[in-house]
Simulated assay, not measured.
Amino acid sequence: MKLRLTKILLTISISTFLFSCNGQVNTEKKSTTSNELLIEKNKPALDNKIWVIYQDSNEQYWFGSNGNGIYHFDGEKIKQFTEENGLVSNQIRGIQENKAGSIFIETPEGISVFDGTSFTTLQPIISENNEWKLEPNDLWFSCNGNANDVFRFDGNNLYQLELPRKDLDKNFGIDTSKLPYNAYSIFGIDRDKDGNIWFGTVLAGAYRYDGKSFLWVNEKELSRQKDGREPGVRSIVEDKNDNIWMGNLSSNYRIRNNKYVKKRIDASIPLKNGQTQFFNSGLSDMDGNLWMTTYSNGVWRYDGKELSRYIIKNSSEQVMLISIYEDKNGTIWLGTDNDGVYRMNGDEFEKFDPKT
C-alpha cells in the first residue's frame, strides 16, 4: 500500500517557504485562453524547475513549475497556464483532482481550481470552533507551509484548521515564542490505506487524524536536529508491511490502538559527515518497493532488505531532485529543480521530452 503524496518541497532553509495565502480573496472565474507552447527546435517544452507531476483520471499529465505556472500534456500537445490565464500564482506546490474531474492547483498564494474551461480561486473559511472532520472525498492543503496550519476542502467550502498545540519546549527544547515562523506549518499531507490523514510539520513532529482523535508522533528525529538542521517532515509513506516512514530512513513506525512504536533500522542513508540523509519525497510503488528522493544525493530504492541508489546526471551537472511520482501504469517520474522531468525506462532514469 502507498500514501499518495500531496506535498513536495525542498529540504533547505525553512524561511524560503513561509508564505501566506493572501491570494485567496478572489472567487470570480477568469476567462482562460491557454498558451499552447511552440515546440521550437532549441527550446525545451517544459520549464527546468518542475516540482510537481500528476496524472489525471484521463491519464493526461500535469507538470507544475516553480515560477512559470502549470503545463498540461495530453499525449500530443502541451499547454501552459499562468497567472495571465487565471492561476493565483505561478509557483505550483501540489496538484489533485476531485471526483468531478476538476484539477486543484496548490500554490503559496492559495488554491486555484480548473474545471476544464476556467480557473476559480478558493476563499478559505476560518473554522471558529476548529471543527475537524474526515470524509473520504476531502482534499487537504497546506498552502506551502504558510503561517496557517492546514486547509480542508469538503467539495463546497475550504476550511482553515489548526493542529492541537503541544509542549514543544518540553519535548524538543524549542521555545516557539522566539520562532519567526509557525512551528506547526505543514509540509507533508498523506493518507494511509485505512483512510487516516497524516500531517508532517516543520518542527512539531507528525500527526495522524482518524476522524475522531489525533495521534502525535513526537520523536526528536522529526524535529530540530542536534546540528541545527530543520528538515521538517516533508514525506510520509506507508510500505507493504504497514510501516509508516517519515522524513528519513533511520526509523519506521507501527501504529496499534492509537499508539505508535518506533523501530530503528540499519538502512539509514549516511552523508559524508555521518549525518542522516533526509528525503523530501517518497512513495511505495505497486510492487511494494520504497522509493525516496534526496535533493542532491540521488534516488534511493529500498526493497525491505537492500538499498539501491540511482544518481541522476545530465551531461554537465548534478540534477537536483524535488519529487517522485508513480503513474497509473507503474512508471516512476522525477521532478527536478534544474533539469525538467525524468522518468524511468528499464533500470535507469532518462530525461523526458514530450516532443519526442
Score class of each variant (00 low, 15 high):
I39K: 12
K41F: 13
K43H: 11
P44A: 10
A45C: 12
K49D: 08
K49N: 11
I50L: 11
W51G: 11
W51A: 11
I53A: 02
I53V: 15
D56K: 06
D56Q: 07
S57T: 07
S57P: 00
N58C: 04
N58K: 14
N58Q: 15
Q60L: 09
G64C: 10
S65M: 10
I70G: 03
T82F: 03
E84V: 04
L87V: 04
V88W: 03
S89L: 03
S89A: 10
Q91P: 00
G94F: 07
Q96E: 14
E97V: 02
G101A: 07
S102N: 15
F104K: 15
I105W: 04
I105E: 04
E106I: 05
T107A: 10
P108S: 05
G110N: 11
I111Y: 02
I111Q: 05
F114A: 00
D115W: 02
S118T: 13
F119D: 09
T121S: 08
T121Q: 06
L122A: 10
I125W: 09
S127K: 05
N130P: 12
L134P: 08
E135I: 08
P136E: 11
L139W: 06
S142L: 01
C143L: 13
N146D: 15
D149V: 08
V150N: 06
R152N: 08
G155C: 07
N156Q: 15
N156P: 00
